[in-house]
């Protein structure tokens, strides 16, 4: 039985707990912000106008969730503001999985973007299912403010998952072209997939302290079971268990893609981080 932690002060009182909790919150926030940012690069370019509008809500939700997780970090004394955490850290301080920092496709959002809807849907589905499984675990977290937030975030994530599942099924079943595009996207995402389930060096403590009940094993098993069910329903072959990745984003190891992402995201902020924007 793990102890319930009701306030930031209680979490800060135990250094081991503080360390694990802070790492967990960075993972949650950075995952959502990295993907929300990538989603936002689709704005105005999506394949269908109604989809452009719907996808823009998903982008906002992800950024909104990141904002809420950063606020919990601010409560734990990590920074003065969520913005300082979102905009003020170097790539080595980021804890997102590498999968989420990858671009939407070749090109740049401002110049000659050749974004890949097959990869976009594949990556988003794999992550949204992971997020749903993680949120379900977090709703039982020993850290009460996080458990409460997870319950709220989960409601918006239900729509994301429904949205992505609908697309996956549609692409998988429609034609050989769309199926090939989706499968190529899944293959590409699969290369980075293992890193999603890494919880970094503090992973065992997150599970042991009940901050993320069940830890990595629960996430992986639940995720695989549900993903396999959808793959079967969509008639997609199961690509097999993912191989370990070279870069563990949870340990601060990132690709050049995160550097590029942050260079874009912080371009205006860096003009004057102390200014009010």
């Amino acid at each position: 039985m793990t102890a319930r932690i009701e306030t930031p002060a209680q979490a800060l009182a135990d250094p081991a707990c503080r360390r694990a909790l802070v790492e967990l919150l960075y993972q949650l926030a950075d995952d959502d912000l990295a993907l929300g940012h990538r989603d936002s690069e689709w704005m105005g370019l999506a394949p269908h106008i109604e989809e452009d509008v719907a996808f823009a809500s998903i982008a906002q939700d992800e950024v909104g969730h990141a904002n809420a997780y950063y606020a919990l970090l601010v409560d734990l004394g990590e920074a003065e503001s969520a913005d300082a955490l979102a905009y003020g850290r170097s790539p080595g301080e980021w804890r997102c999985a590498v999968l989420l920092e990858r671009p939407n496709g070749p090109g740049h959002y401002l110049k000659d973007p050749q974004f890949d809807w097959g990869y976009t849907i594949a990556r988003h589905y794999l992550y949204d299912l992971f997020e749903m499984v993680r949120l379900e675990a977090l709703m039982e977290s020993a850290y009460l403010p996080l458990a409460q937030l997870a319950a709220k975030v989960r409601r918006e994530e239900r729509y994301h998952l429904l949205h992505m599942e609908t697309w996956v099924k549609r692409l998988a079943r429609h034609s050989s072209v769309s199926r090939a595009r989706l499968q190529a996207g899944l293959e590409k995402a699969w290369v980075d997939l293992y890193g999603l389930f890494s919880l970094g060096p503090e992973g065992p403590a997150m599970a042991a302290l009940g901050l993320l009940p069940g830890g990595r094993d629960r996430l992986w098993q639940t995720w695989r079971e549900r993903a396999q069910a959808l793959f079967a329903e969509a008639g997609l072959p199961w690509p097999g268990d993912p191989s370990p990745v070279m870069l563990d984003g949870r340990a601060g190891q990132h690709s050049a893609d995160l550097e590029a992402l942050l260079a874009t995201m912080t371009e205006v902020y860096r003009l004057d981080p102390a200014a009010r924007w």
Partner: peptide, 11 residues
């Protein structure tokens, strides 16, 4: 059962 997906966080 889908009703809760219309709930929104602060916007």
């Amino acid at each position: 059962e889908e009703a809760e997906m219309f709930d929104r966080l602060d916007k």
